[in-house]
Amino acid sequence: MSLRRVSAVACGVFVVGEVVLRLSWIAGGRWGYTACDRTDLGDHPAGGCGADQVATVPFGAGWGALGFCVALAVLIAYADRWKAAVTWVAAAILLVLAFPLHLLFEIPAGVAGHPTDWRDIGGRVALLAGGIAFAGLANAVGPPRGPAPTEFRPAPGWARRWAHVAVALPIVGWAVPHGLWVLGVPFGISEQKLRGADGDLSTATGVAITVVPPLAGLLVLGLVQRWGQRFPRWVPGLGGRRVPRLLAVLPAGTVAITLVTYGVLSFGVFAGQVLDGEQSWAQVREGWATVATLLVFLSWGVAVGVTTAGYVVATRRSVDG
């Protein structure tokens, strides 16, 4: 079965599943629905924070999402000229809505026993899968290309420099301060806030949150190294084979979009709190490290995005074969 057919079937299953789920919520069912606020899970997040007591599903989760699914299906079915562009836009929207960056923290925390809204996580994993399916379809329905390069093509110099920035940022801007907080050092935050964080997270969860992002950041090096274009010889069954371009570009692009989106939205929230007086400049100075983390996310996303662009340039298919 071709990639195009597999992707189309996966997209169809996703859209039908989402339509059925949203219709069930509109009709009064609450299976898989959550009333939790991601910033405040309340006392019973596993049960959706009282989802069964919600009388009317919000527009965005009900009719709004249903309309988006229907419009998406119609556009992809009939917009022949713009099919690839529309599908790419749909994939980007779904991947951003999935907030995959949070999943990296929430799933390990939930497995470690931290109170978790599994309904929200399940819904966003479904969105993530849908975004990947639509990205695969967009790649399959795009204009025909020439043969992929068979030899290693070095990334441009600017891409290699940005890759090093993308690796350094989560280490310096995330692992270092979080490592100090796990050790009980109030680096850039108040002691009261540090004590509150210690009460919410176990030591194992704190270590995982500290270590996972920089380890994941090391994967960015694959976009500028030989093993990002050819599987290493020691990989069973795949050693020496060409890495599918989409396998590298899609996850990296998703992470870049998510990080930039998260950074921009978080800065917007922060600016609103300062302007409304919810946070004073004295509080900002006392907790400067948490504000700096927002800048780290935004810069990290830009660095990953530019590095991904360099990978695309380096692995661009030859027109003349």
Results as ranks from 00 to 15, higher is better:
Pro170Thr: 12
Leu246Phe: 13
Asp37Glu: 14
Val319Tyr: 09
Thr87Gly: 05
Val89Glu: 01
Phe297Ala: 07
Gly17Gln: 01
Ala292Arg: 06
Phe68Met: 09
Ser7Phe: 03
Gly277Ile: 08
Leu66Lys: 00
Ile132Phe: 01
Trp234Glu: 04
Gly28Ser: 10
Gly253Tyr: 06
Arg230Leu: 12
Val57His: 03
Leu238Ala: 10
Pro251Gln: 05
Arg30Asp: 04
Val304Cys: 05
Gly196Ile: 08
Val264Lys: 04
Arg317Thr: 09
Leu246His: 04
Gly206Pro: 06
Gly64Ile: 11
Leu137Arg: 01
Val185Trp: 06
Pro186Gly: 09
Arg119Leu: 15
Pro147Asn: 08
Ile76Phe: 01
Ile93Asp: 04
Glu106Lys: 12
Pro115Thr: 13
Ser7Ala: 15
His178Lys: 14
Val6Glu: 07
Gly62Lys: 02
Phe270Ser: 10
Gly29Cys: 05
Arg195His: 12
Leu23Trp: 02
Ala256Val: 08
Ile121Tyr: 06
Thr34Ala: 07
Val165Lys: 01
Leu66Ser: 03
Leu75Thr: 15
Thr150Asn: 06
Asn139Leu: 11
Ala85Met: 11
Ala27Asp: 10
Arg5Lys: 13
Leu201Pro: 01
Gly228Ile: 03
Ala71Gly: 15
Ala90Asp: 04
Pro232Asn: 02
Gly268Thr: 13
Ile209Lys: 03
Glu286Val: 06
Glu151Leu: 12
Thr293Trp: 07
His164Leu: 15
Ala84Pro: 04
